[in-house]
């Protein structure tokens, strides 16, 4: 069985702070990480590898530094890594990104295509389903469990607002996975050593099967008109005191606000 997992390198948005004076983002020193939902998807793929001996390929689109998340994926247990990189891909919105990745995926054989539900920098959740459409694959999003039923079928659990659904899809298919569903494994020492001995394949546009007009900024139907920091609310009162007094203050404020 062949599985391809799409991963993205993202700034750890938990570590981004706001300059309280200017209201702008402080991005200096913010670490880059493997997007959490993608890591959850990779973990699900690696569990299928443990169970069934699947071959796991990871692919990312990004600048040369994105090599780092692919090495991390190697250290976790991925077998093959592809970095899709080049200026033709730059400035892409979700549709152009999905066209680029689909172009690369057309040249690969796979039974399962796994993505994270969404990336923490953009939070759009769009690239997965858009890729599935370009590749004419069935899709299931918000997946928290994957079981291979037989050669042709996967049975998955999908979370939704009311609970969950159990669905079956014919392979090949696309699944987008939730980080909260699994605890990704740690990199092991042997894996880390190997990660730097393995080759990350770097692919440019010449290596993929896509109409160049659909890539990058010119292939993007949406354009950012402006980006701006959200206004800050003026901070309220803060007390540093012992628990007894703290409780007294809370009770008095709740009374003032007619909450109790």
């Amino acid at each position: 069985m062949n599985i391809v997992v799409c991963i993205k390198q993202v700034p750890d948005t938990n570590e981004i702070k706001i300059n309280p004076v200017t209201g702008t983002l402080i991005r200096d020193g913010v670490p880059s990480i493997m997007n959490p939902d993608d890591k959850g998807g990779l973990e699900m793929a690696l569990r299928l590898k443990d169970e069934l001996g699947a071959h796991v390929t990871v692919i990312t689109m990004g600048p040369p530094q994105a090599d780092l998340v692919l090495r991390e994926a190697f250290a976790m247990g991925a077998d093959r890594a592809i970095l899709l990189s080049g200026r033709e891909f730059a400035g892409a919105d979700t549709l152009a990104t999905s066209n680029a990745l689909a172009g690369a995926l057309r040249t690969l054989q796979f039974d399962l295509l796994i993505c994270g539900r969404q990336a923490i920098d953009g939070d759009t959740a769009q690239v997965g389903p858009q890729m599935a459409e370009h590749l004419d694959l069935p899709q299931i999003s918000y997946v928290c469990d994957i079981k291979v039923k037989d050669e042709k079928t996967v049975r998955v659990v999908k979370e939704n607002e009311d609970g969950h659904q159990i669905l079956e899809a014919q392979m090949p298919c696309l699944l987008t996975c939730l980080a909260s569903a699994v605890h990704p494994r740690y990199m092991n020492v042997a894996g880390i050593v190997q990660a730097y001995n393995k080759e990350v394949e770097v692919w440019g546009v010449d290596r993929i099967d896509v109409d160049l007009a659909k890539l990058g900024l010119k292939g993007s139907p949406t354009k950012v008109l402006k980006a701006f920091a959200k206004g800050l609310k003026s901070p309220g009162e803060v007390f540093e005191t012992d628990p007894e007094e703290a409780v007294g203050i809370i009770i008095s404020r709740l009374k003032e606000k007619f909450i109790i």
């Binding site: 700034p11 948005t13 938990n14 981004i16 706001i18 983002l25 923490i120 920098d121 953009g122 939070d123 139907p221 949406t222 354009k223 950012v224 008109l225 402006k226 980006a227 701006f228 920091a229 959200k230």
Partner: peptide, 15 residues
Amino acid sequence: PAFGGNLMATIMCTE
């Protein structure tokens, strides 16, 4: 919202 919520982006799809 983008970048986890503090940056806002206004987006258009004119073509």
